[in-house]
Design a protein around this nucleic acid. Sequence first.
DNA 1: AGGTCAACCTGAGCGC
DNA 2: TGCGCTCAGGTTGACC
Length: 288
Amino acid sequence: MPELPEVETVMTGLKPALEGHRFTHVETRRKDLRIPFPKDFAKRLNGRKVLHLWRRAKYIMADLDGGETLVIHLGMSGRMTVFAKSQSRKLGQFHYDPAPDEPEKHDHVIFDTDAPARVSFNDHRRFGLMTLIDTGKIESHKLFKDVGVEPLSKGFDVAFLKDALKDKKAPIKSALLDQRLIAGLGNIYVCEALWRAKISPRRRASRVKPDEIALLANAIKEVLLEAVEAGGSSLRDHKQVHGELGYFQHRFAVYSREKKLCQRADDGIIKRIVQSGRSSFFCPICQR
DNA sequence: AGGTCAACCTGAGCGC
DNA sequence: TGCGCTCAGGTTGACC
């Protein structure tokens, strides 16, 4: 499911229920996700206060009192949902529905907080993960030490992108998906950004010209910002924390639009190809 | 060293 | 209705 805009949307939605609040009860309902939970995971979270929620790459980060950070990755199908503990209660600007009496299928972790709120983590494919790491050691942690620049940060600009691509022999599509270069892009937004920049996903990264890289850097920022604004893209699994769909999928130019007419080229038909095992969608007429 | 690919897992959709 | 096949917003480790 989730790329940067979806993770950002979920993280922001979790803030009223988590930020500044304490975990009153945490329950893991199986022993692992993609990787095992750390030892005594639930027990170590009980009573801890969430100081700050933020996002790095496709990870949701919750800095806790006591110097540890709860790290959450949603994998392909992970979803987090916020419920009210009490039907009459309102939190922040949102209404919260009451939590169901029984957890639903694939609800793997349940967090109760003193907001009061209940947050469930549901992930039917279990490609997600959760762990706890020392807040001071995030940058050097295995999960983060090789993660690249945030595409919405000041560090991501035309000069950066030129440098990052200059020796890359891989197709530009694969290079943009590489989290070691740019953190947070995934299959949807790479396809969409390449369409906006009129660059074929098959082009060798090192052969993309400087003026095209300038267009591309801009397209990446633009598409991500628009998608965050839209609450992400809901294809199968992504929902916001109160069940609302994202709506950026209605603005796709190419993703999942195989055989449809390109909105830019007169007779361009969107084509699907497979690159390093993943679908790429593009218009062979206007993307060169 | 850099690039590609299968594996991890469940569910939805499609053709027969 | 059901079976078998394909595909899915990601990441990783084994392999060329």
